[in-house]
Design a protein around this nucleic acid. Structure first.
Lengths: 213, 213
DNA sequence: AAACTACTGTGAAAAGGTTCACAGCGTGTG
DNA sequence: CACACGCTGTGAACCTTTTCACAGTAGTTT
């Protein structure tokens, strides 16, 4: 079984590799990839071990093949459709962000409980009324949900998604979700991240000032 | 020194405690907080140890005091101003999100290289042209930067912020930032998170199917 | 006032993740 | 053809984080 952290880094490596391909590169060494990803060479090699690809001691990794191997691990064979719930400021920004970016993992349906937002197409994605969630999720075979509703509604939306058959949720609401064990939920808590950054920004300033005298 | 993970959880605990206060509660046990935060009671107790607050064996933690102790650790005494660079879809959503939410940590200036966006006020926050970044950051004593520009510009924006004196950066661009060691950078990579969720969503489905027969 | 209860605080063990360090190898070179 | 080079793959050491488990304690009951 591959660890959560490794999966995250593989996703990152792949995007970096895509960029290298565009630059016309064909091979890459672990230390180069590490430099771009902000990690160590040993870690890159370990992560790549997990996908079962082997590089050459002299040329490094063959970029095209490595991308394919990472894809074999990360991607569903037939592509994956995701759904987004909560077409507010943040929801629309996320939809714009993913619109046409990753063909194998696209947002294919959005929901909002404001009836004025329903039955439109935003950034290429149809918006439905909440009442149709279970139908649409089942019909389109959606396994991945994105929650961009206010904190107070997040848990009940999550419950609805789980009941509809979703087994992975990315949650932007500032509330940790409670989900059954067979559902993977990741909380992307912007407030927490910003407070962390503010804390360490201050620490760094204090340290610098402490070193001075 | 307090670990990064603990700082993040403290931020979360504080918000949960705020909610409990509003509900009229005065005390809370570690296992209750753990239930809300999605962690274990032992972890909550360890985290609270780090802020140097002690609860009562019979009443648990006094909520009001605990909030104050967490604030002593997380917050700057005089409040902290943050700046956001990149007033696009995502940037505006983030600005709306923080507008008036946390008084001690507010976005007090935004920048964009589109001159049409400059010299306005969005969600209560003034928007400036990029050329004024160094001035404004210095004048307002800003230590925290938020990057919501496209990937290609993120690194150079980060360099600009660092040069202007920022010591903590929250990065939404899908590129890991390279920053000097005295600058704390957190990459909030939505693509990575979504691919992680998609991967584990699929794993869960496969597991369930594997258990069935 | 003694006994009981259910909590906290924390040393110690366990788990998980990262880095070290080196054997092994494929290629270019003398 | 033999050698030297600088990479990969990986066991083992190391470090960080989480969990266990229990002594200590403040209130509550008898």
């Amino acid at each position: 079984m591959i660890s959560e952290k490794t999966i995250g880094r593989l996703s990152l490596y792949r995007r970096l590799l895509d960029r290298l391909l565009l630059q016309g590169k064909a091979h890459v060494y672990s230390h180069q990839l590490a430099g771009m990803a902000g990690g160590t060479a040993a870690q890159v090699r370990r992560d790549i071990m997990a996908v079962g690809y082997s590089g050459s001691p002299t040329r490094g990794y063959e970029i095209r093949q490595l991308i394919r191997c990472i894809g074999n691990v990360l991607d569903d064979l037939h592509g994956e459709g995701a759904t987004l719930v909560g077409v507010g400021n943040l929801g629309r920004a996320i939809m714009a962000y993913f619109s046409g970016r990753r063909p194998h993992l696209a947002i294919v349906a959005a929901f909002d409980n404001d009836p004025y937002k329903a039955d439109r197409v935003i950034h290429g994605c149809p918006v439905y009324a909440m009442s149709r969630l279970a139908d649409v999720v089942a019909e389109k075979n959606i396994r991945v949900g994105i929650i961009t509703v206010p904190g107070g509604e997040a848990q009940s939306v999550a419950d609805t998604l789980v009941a509809a058959g979703v087994s992975g949720i990315l949650n932007f609401a500032p509330v940790p979700l409670r989900t059954p064990p067979h559902v993977y939920a990741e909380d992307l808590d912007v407030t927490m991240s910003l407070e962390k950054v503010a804390f360490f920004a201050r620490q760094n300033v204090l340290e610098k000032e402490a070193v001075k005298p």
